[in-house]
Design a protein around this nucleic acid. Structure first.
Length: 190
DNA sequence: CATGGGATTGACT
DNA sequence: GTCAATCCCATGC
């Protein structure tokens, strides 16, 4: 997808990414859950301003921002808004569509619904790591592509973001309501 | 240089 | 429902 797609308000990008496809190393999945983060609110890593860590968040849109969560998991984001604004969309869940056998191997599981139903799970399933921080999502190795026809106009639900303590009430989480691969139910009661 | 806090997950009661 | 694993980074002394 082109840079213009990401160079928009981050909440809009988060909504539009539902149905798009993420690919890496022979595996791919359709995005079914996202959350928006913006430097104007304290839950966003970019809230602290420009540091070594947040450099990619403030950089040009359409790039990957990777961070380590709880010392264990890598989480994947798509940098959005114009350069100079620190904003990104957290990819929280995918429906596996390609390389399922390899995903099972990496995750040590068999149930397809459990392979990518969480931000730390999907990076493990696709083999995405911190070294992909800053990668151009149009060129790879991590690639985002437009939604397949069957995934356009699927019903999407909005709710509060999950697992955060700061700014917990912003309705910036988006889910494909009919998916069985969400990290939590679409209508989260926070 | 020491410290504390996570945008999580899986195992266990 | 509870809880620990584990590490990167921003902050403060």
């Amino acid at each position: 997808m082109k840079r213009a797609f990401y160079q928009r308000p981050v909440v809009e990008v988060a909504r539009e990414l539902i149905g798009c496809v993420v690919s890496h190393d022979r595996c791919a999945g359709v995005i079914v859950e996202t959350e928006a983060y913006h430097d104007s609110e304290p839950a966003c890593h970019a809230f602290v301003g420009l540091t070594n860590r947040t450099r990619v968040l403030f950089g040009p849109p359409g790039h990957a921002y990777l961070y380590r969560s709880y010392g264990i998991h890598a989480c994947l984001n798509a940098v959005s808004e114009p350069e100079g604004v620190g904003a990104a969309v957290l990819i929280r869940a995918l429906e596996p569509v390609e390389g399922i056998e390899l995903m099972c191997e990496r995750r040590g599981l068999e149930r397809v619904e459990d392979l990518c139903s969480g931000p730390g799970k999907l990076t493990q399933a696709l083999g995405i790591e911190l070294e992909h921080n800053g990668c151009d999502l149009g060129r790879g190795p991590v690639v985002f592509a437009r939604a397949p026809r069957a995934w356009r106009d699927v019903p999407v639900a909005v709710s509060k973001r999950i697992g955060i303590t700061k700014a917990p009430d912003l309705p910036w989480r988006f889910c494909a309501v009919d998916s069985r691969c969400l990290s939590r139910p679409a209508l989260s009661r926070a």
